[in-house]
């Protein structure tokens, strides 16, 4: 198998290498990829959408359908992880609790778990003492990470950024919280139900914006139809429509990243995490 694999790959590599010699040189401005469609985008972005970042305008406006279905793919991936891993919580044989004043660890059998006790604290099976520095530092920097994520989403028109990046940074802040504290605390603050709801809401915001354009009598995802609601002329309406859509993408991506992390890090039990 290994020999056969190596031979196949060598054959593929040689063939590709031969044909790569026919490609236009690296950085050639006259290459076919740069001469057909992209000049239109570069020249007309400003007058069509008033968005200086061409990537954002092409992503959310000219190729809006593409991005909408990519968002749907991400939602589907989150659902797939959920369906693959999530199992009903069967009766867990034993749990570990820590008696806070004495530091004694207890192994509780059956259903005799202390409920919301002030002195007993639930522990993971492979619990290690919390590092004070790590948990405090993370708690300190997480708000700044989240503000940066919001900035990235909102400033995607003028600088690199947008819904995907901002959403992932926002999701990463919650994942950092789950790593630095524990999974249960994180789920208490941002539950799985919230994650599921947000991921659907994000896709709904995107598709709903498109449908709203239909209601105003223009084609799907033509944001200039929204000028009466969003204010400004038809060009600025497209710019604002891009922002609305990016917010939808960001909400969906945030929720899906957190959801996949919850399922992967606890192998579906959502009980004891990384």
């Amino acid at each position: 198998m290994k020999i056969l694999g190596k031979l196949t790959i060598l054959l593929c590599g040689v063939l590709l290498m031969v044909f790569a010699m026919e490609f236009p040189n690296w950085g050639d401005p006259e290459s076919p990829a740069s001469t057909h469609l992209s000049p239109y985008f570069i020249q007309h972005t400003m007058e069509d959408t008033a968005v200086p970042n061409i990537v954002t305008s092409v992503l959310a406006d000219y190729r809006g359908y593409d991005t909408m279905f990519e968002t749907t793919v991400i939602l589907t991936a989150g659902l797939a992880c959920f369906l693959l891993l999530r199992i009903e919580r069967k009766k867990i044989p034993h749990r570990y609790y820590r008696h806070e004043p004495t530091g004694v660890t207890l192994r509780m059998e059956g259903e005799k778990y202390p409920k919301n006790s002030a002195v007993f604290q639930r522990m993971d099976a492979n619990w290690v003492p919390y590092d004070f520095v790590i948990s405090r530092t993370c708690r300190l920097i997480i708000p700044f990470i989240q503000i940066f994520a919001l900035y990235v989403v909102a400033h995607g028109h003028h600088s690199p950024g947008g819904g995907f990046q901002g959403g992932v940074i926002m999701g990463a802040s919650v994942i950092l919280f789950a790593i630095s504290h524990n999974l249960r605390t994180s789920i208490k603050n941002f539950s799985e139900k919230t994650a599921a709801l947000f991921s659907v809401t994000g896709v709904f915001i995107y598709a709903g914006t498109g449908a709203l354009c239909l209601l105003f009598g223009e084609v799907f995802l033509n944001y200039s139809a929204l000028a009466p609601i969003l204010g400004g002329d038809r060009v600025m309406a497209r710019s604002h429509g891009i922002l609305v859509v990016e917010i939808g993408v960001a909400v969906a991506v945030t929720a899906v990243m957190i959801w996949i992390y919850y399922n992967l890090s606890s192998a579906g039990k959502q009980d004891e995490g990384l």
């Binding site: 970042n53 990537v55 954002t56 690199p160 950024g161 947008g162 995907f164 990046q165 992932v168 940074i169 999701g171 990463a172 994942i175 790593i179 990243m257 996949i260 992390y261 992967l264 890090s265 990384l274």
Partner: peptide, 21 residues
């Protein structure tokens, strides 16, 4: 720049966490 930004957040950040998990 946009692709690099996305890769820095997604590829180097979140996907590593997923793999480790």
């Amino acid at each position: 720049v946009d692709v690099a930004f996305t890769e820095a957040t997604v590829g180097a950040g979140v996907s590593t966490v997923f793999c480790v998990a």
